[in-house]
């Protein structure tokens, strides 16, 4: 995955995520918004077929990268939880 920081301050971040779409961004946005440290989390895909999504987020003074890292671990954990629950019920 290729990332490009468009803009970054102490509590704000604009991040372009190459090659991804709603599948990943919507999940990430949802998890970010569940975090109390996050004020704004949203993303925009300017053109459906030629643009890469840009994630914009604003925190309550916390490092946005740190907050995204936590969100991503949560997402991985969610996937593991699903796989676990699914394998258990199928077998």
């Amino acid at each position: 995955m290729e990332l490009k920081i468009i803009d970054k301050t102490n509590d704000e971040l604009s991040l372009e995520i190459k090659g991804e779409d709603h599948t990943f961004l919507n999940m990430l946005k949802f998890i970010l918004l569940e975090d109390d440290r996050v004020n704004i989390a949203t993303y925009d895909i300017k053109h459906v077929s030629i643009s890469d999504p840009v994630l914009y987020m604003k925190t309550e003074g916390y490092d946005p990268i740190e907050v995204i890292r936590d969100a991503l671990s949560n997402m991985s954990q969610e996937c593991d939880e699903f796989l676990d629950a699914f394998s258990k019920t199928v077998n």
Partner: peptide
């Protein structure tokens, strides 16, 4: 169908793990 569901959640996990790995270098 069973494999498809497992593969889908693995694909999602691969994305989040992949981005986490890239963010380590920031």
């Amino acid at each position: 169908a069973e494999e498809l569901i497992q593969q889908a959640s693995k694909a999602l996990k691969k994305k989040s793990d992949g981005m986490l790995e890239v963010l380590e270098h920031f």
